[in-house]
């Protein structure tokens, strides 16, 4: 999977590049609008992550260029501006998602995966992990072909874990993914604990091994490793 990261801030660009290379993506980076336009024209990418505020122009222009050349790449806008109009313009231009800075890399990763799944036209979008299979189209989860009844929040929790396997996910990242800005940190951690306990129990009841490891003080890891 080829990923183009367009970000002018060197530290953030490097951190993102490192993280996604660890995830197994082929990562190309661009720091300016000119570089980005050039690289977007030179290769086909599966997904483009674009920062709107670039030193030499607006990242939205990259999206316009991509759409003009009928690129099939998924597009995720990353912006420091919490601006509704930017978001709407971006989505109107044909971007797939919009993320406001600061964000968790695991969140961006989950979004990229979701965009890539949606790009698989007609293909199998099922997310699999061991005996667990999750169908994003209808939110159905099965363990060894037995349906598991999950609540909306539990479903989103599971999908987030499945999108970031073998990664330590902080409680903050998980809580923000599930509840967004609607909840403050301290309130959401207790709640998160309850939801994770329920999810664990439901999966375990269907005979699913417990992949979810608790790292005290840090968060959770969804992994097959002991």
């Amino acid at each position: 999977m080829k990923l183009l990261l367009i970000e002018d801030e060197p530290a953030l660009r490097t951190a993102m590049q490192q993280y996604f290379e660890q995830e197994g993506y082929l990562v190309t980076t661009a720091a300016t609008l000119r570089q980005a336009t050039q690289k977007a024209n030179d290769y086909d990418y599966d997904c483009v992550v674009v920062d709107i505020g670039l030193p030499d122009g607006n990242g939205l222009d990259v999206i316009r260029g991509l759409k003009q050349s009928h690129s099939q790449a998924g597009i995720i806008i990353v912006s420091a501006h919490d601006s509704l109009s930017d978001k709407l313009t971006g989505l109107e231009l044909g971007s797939d998602d919009y993320l406001t800075k600061p964000f968790h890399l695991s969140e961006l990763n989950a979004r990229i995966r979701s965009v890539l799944r949606r790009r698989l036209h007609g293909g199998d979008t099922t997310v699999r992990f061991g005996p667990i299979s999750l169908q994003p189209d209808n939110h159905q989860v099965r363990v060894q072909d037995q349906p598991v009844e999950l609540t909306e929040k539990e479903y989103h929790l599971l999908l987030f874990f499945l999108s970031n396997p073998n990664r330590l996910l902080s409680k903050a990242a998980i809580a923000e993914h599930v509840w967004g800005d609607y909840m403050d940190a301290a309130d959401s951690y207790d709640l998160l604990y309850t939801h994770i306990r329920n999810l664990r129990k439901k999966l375990h009841d269907k005979g699913c091994p417990d992949y979810l490891q608790t790292r005290y003080g840090a968060g959770y890891v969804f992994t097959t490793e002991a």
């Binding site: 801030e9 530290a11 951190a15 420091a80 919490d82 600061p102 890399l105 990242a173 840090a218």
Partner: peptide, 18 residues
Amino acid sequence: HEMQTPLAIASAELELLS
């Protein structure tokens, strides 16, 4: 923009560190 970007860097670095 100016404040959220350094925060994004700090957040990303912490995540990598973790």
